[in-house]
């Protein structure tokens, strides 16, 4: 289960998507998500799905990795789909029991919602698989920069984010180790009543929190001992820059977005 959490995982290979500027990728993802939500007719859905598949192909990341990213949310997808199928009013097509008619409208809505969720996860995964956490936060910081004039602590926000992202795998690994250590003492995290399972979490959460605090403390000391004091005048080893590929990607993205809008208007 823990190994299935792929969000925030970087997949270090070389592909056109890997070479793009993180800012282009972040803005494109935002546009893509908006487009997915704007889509309101079958053609727009087909287009969005095709575009997402194109992104997946360009990323050169194995399709199995994307499926792995979907694993933890299958339950949510199926659950919402079932709710939609049975609780949307409309033309009844089949009757289970006597109060939960399955409707044609529900079926279509369920399909749309499921497709939306899957496309959202796949496209966000495409960003994190192809962008290293450092580049990602660099990109976010650069994009937020205009807001610094309004007093938003953009640098601190970006630093907090990169630290948080950096520690996701560490904490997952730590959780795994703690679970193993407690399992070796007969702990059972997977069976029993809900109350029992919640109680069974204490032996896992206590060591995890303690170690997280200890790590935070050590990191703070390590940063301060290297004279860290925030954003002013701090420079980078590798500045991020736009390249030709970003122009192509941007144009493609805008064309796709425009197509979705046009489809929305004319159909």
């Amino acid at each position: 289960m823990l190994k299935d959490i792929t969000l925030g995982q970087y997949f270090p290979i070389d592909s056109p998507l890997h070479r793009m500027d993180p800012r282009t990728k972040i803005l494109s993802l935002i546009l893509l998500i908006v487009a997915i939500f704007l889509a309101n007719n079958p053609w727009a859905y087909v287009l969005a799905a095709a575009f997402t598949l194109l992104v997946v192909a360009l990323s050169k990341v194995p399709v199995s990795m994307y499926f792995r990213g979907l694993k933890p949310i299958w339950f949510v997808i199926i659950f919402t789909a079932l709710l939609n199928i049975f609780f949307t009013p409309g033309t009844k097509i089949y009757l289970f029991g006597y109060r939960t008619p399955m409707t044609w409208e529900g079926l279509i809505l369920a399909g749309k919602m499921a497709l939306r969720l899957v496309l959202l996860i796949i496209s966000s995964s495409a960003l994190t698989y192809t962008t290293s956490p450092i580049l990602l936060t660099d990109g976010i910081e650069k994009l937020l920069k205009p807001l610094a004039k309004l007093g938003l602590p953009t640098f601190e926000l970006a630093m907090m984010m990169s630290i948080a992202i950096r520690f996701i795998p560490t904490l997952i690994e730590e959780t795994d180790k703690i679970m193993k250590a407690q399992k070796a003492r007969g702990a059972d995290f997977e069976s029993g009543s809900v109350l029992h399972r919640v109680k069974a979490l204490a032996p896992m959460l206590v060591p995890l929190f303690i170690s997280a605090f200890r790590r935070a403390d050590e990191l703070a000391v390590a940063m301060e001992s290297r004279c860290y004091q925030g954003g002013e005048h701090r420079t980078r080893l590798n500045e991020i820059r736009f390249h030709l590929i970003d122009a192509f990607a941007g144009l493609l993205m805008l064309a796709f977005f425009a197509a979705v809008i046009i489809l929305r208007i004319i159909l």
Partner: peptide, 13 residues
């Protein structure tokens, strides 16, 4: 088969 891991911090709670 009792297994004791390297770091006691991973199991004391």
């Amino acid at each position: 088969v009792g297994l004791v891991f390297q770091y006691p911090e991973h199991q004391l709670f």
